[in-house]
Amino acid sequence: MLRPVIAGVDGSQESLAAAEWAAREAVRRERPLRLAHVRNWHPRQDGEPPTAAQRHLAQRALRQAEDRIRRTCPNVVVDDVQVDGPATAALLSLSEQADVLVLGSRGLSGFTGFLVGSVALGVVARCERPVVLVRAEEEAADEHLPGRDGGASVRTGYRDVVLALDLNDPCDEVIEFAFEAARTRGARLRAVHAWQPPSPLTLGPGEIGLVEGPYRAEEWLGFMTAVLQVWRDKYPGVEVVETVTQSRPQSVLVRAASGASLLVVGRRITDRPAGPRTGPVAHAAIHHVGCPVAVVPHA
Rank of each mutant, 00 (worst) to 15 (best):
C291K: 02
V289R: 00
V83N: 00
A178C: 05
V162T: 14
L201V: 11
E48T: 07
R55P: 00
G204C: 03
L103N: 10
A52Q: 12
R188E: 06
E242Q: 12
V295E: 01
F179H: 13
P205H: 09
R3V: 04
P236L: 00
A65L: 12
V211F: 02
E66L: 13
T245P: 10
S93N: 02
G259S: 04
T156I: 07
E14D: 09
W231P: 11
V241H: 10
G204S: 03
A182Q: 10
G206M: 13
P205Y: 05
Q97I: 04
A294G: 03
V254D: 08
L210F: 14
R129T: 14
D46Q: 13
V102L: 03
G213F: 15
A18N: 08
W21L: 05
R255I: 05
V38D: 05
R24T: 12
V131E: 02
T156G: 11
Q246R: 15
A61R: 01
V241D: 13
V102A: 08
R135S: 09
A294T: 08
R272K: 13
L16I: 13
R68I: 14
P86Y: 07
G275L: 02
V124H: 07
R190N: 04
A17E: 01
S95R: 00
T278C: 11
A284G: 09
G206N: 09
K234D: 14
G107C: 03
H288S: 03
S109V: 04
R29F: 12
A53W: 07
G213D: 15
L133Q: 12
R255G: 05
